[in-house]
Amino acid sequence: MTSGAEEVLFWCLAPLMVIAALGLIFARKAVHATICMVFVMISLAVMYIANQAPFLGIVQVVVYTGAVMMLFLFVIMLVGVDAGDSLVDTLKGQKWIGWILGIGLGITLFSFLGRLTLSGGQGHGSTVANNPAELARVLLGNFVFPLELVGILLVTAAIAALTMTHKRNLTRRIGQKELADARVASGARLTPLPSPGVFAQRNAMDVPALDPQGNPVESSVSRVLRARGQERDAIYDPEIEQLDKAGRPAPSTWDHEIEASSAALDEMPEQGAGVADGEASQSENSSTEKED
């Protein structure tokens, strides 16, 4: 007979297990059913440990909760979380037949169990303390051949899973070189898209970059923002105009300044371009130092 503590454990856990198992039938989403199943598995592990089978309890947690149910979750993610049940009845009245058969199965099993007379039970007694060692003694003493067979089965299953999920290449593999060649041949843009707002007055995602002529480059703004109509105008944005009034040159005047400065450079006497650049950078540096 079992102890009082085990009785409390059983009656706490068993109803929850049954409810979680019912979730398998009634849960609409496959993920919820899986989570219910994980709960049942962990509770079963506790039941095993309470039933003097600690090794099996831990194996249950490792194999079922840790590996099998996570594999289920992976597959659910692979085939799409919202792949629900189809609502169309292919077989007419399948639902009612299913319920009748399920309840009939339950009634049959229960009636069998009702006719069963169980003796008081012996329990494992002293062997519980070193349950894994005792289990190994039975496993490697009487069940060596089945153990070998199970090993072969596991290897076969692993190879089967590999071959079945293997995707055969029906066409030639498209590598980096083939992609690049195709892009050049089709005349598409070869360089990366320009980053937004770099030559406009701000670095925000929604402001287009300006090309050297000062025109906004539409492709520099994210496609999503463009589709939503959330992109901003580069030049005629009132916020930018406010910034302009605060003393910064408007982008439309940049070109003139550059022209003026280049004209000034042309007027300078012939010197090595590198030297002139060096002097210019030096003077710029000194001016910034003074400002600091």
Partner: peptide, 22 residues
Amino acid sequence: YLAVILFTIGGATVLLRRNAII
């Protein structure tokens, strides 16, 4: 009895659900 209940629920799931994973 708990094992029988769980077995029945599992069997009913096989009969009733259409999602292959469930």
